[in-house]
């Protein structure tokens, strides 16, 4: 059981670590992009929005990190 728990902790640290927004953010971006594709929005528009979404995730992470750094 302790091995399972240790593996779970390792996996959590590997994928989420100390920045939950870098795990949740890309998933949200992809779900929104998929929904737009299903709604018939042009691929090029969805692609650009996806990049903007990823950059917003970076901005959110930096904002949260810098807010707590000083």
């Amino acid at each position: 059981m302790s091995y399972v728990r240790a593996f779970g902790a390792f996996l959590y640290d590997f994928l989420i670590g100390d920045a939950w927004e870098l795990f949740v953010g890309p998933i949200v971006v992809l779900v929104v992009a998929w929904s737009l594709i299903q709604a018939g929005v042009a691929a090029v528009v969805v692609g650009v929005l996806m990049v903007v979404g990823v950059l917003m995730v970076v901005a959110l992470n930096l904002f949260l990190a810098l807010r707590g750094s000083i």
Binding site: A19, L22, I27, V54, V58, N61, A65, S69
Partner: peptide, 20 residues
């Protein structure tokens, strides 16, 4: 890759900026 790449990039940005 997106999740992992964001972790590497954001940490590198913070280190380069002097916040980490």
């Amino acid at each position: 890759l997106l999740i992992y790449g964001l972790q590497w990039t954001c940490k590198a940005i913070l280190r380069a900026a002097g916040a980490k």
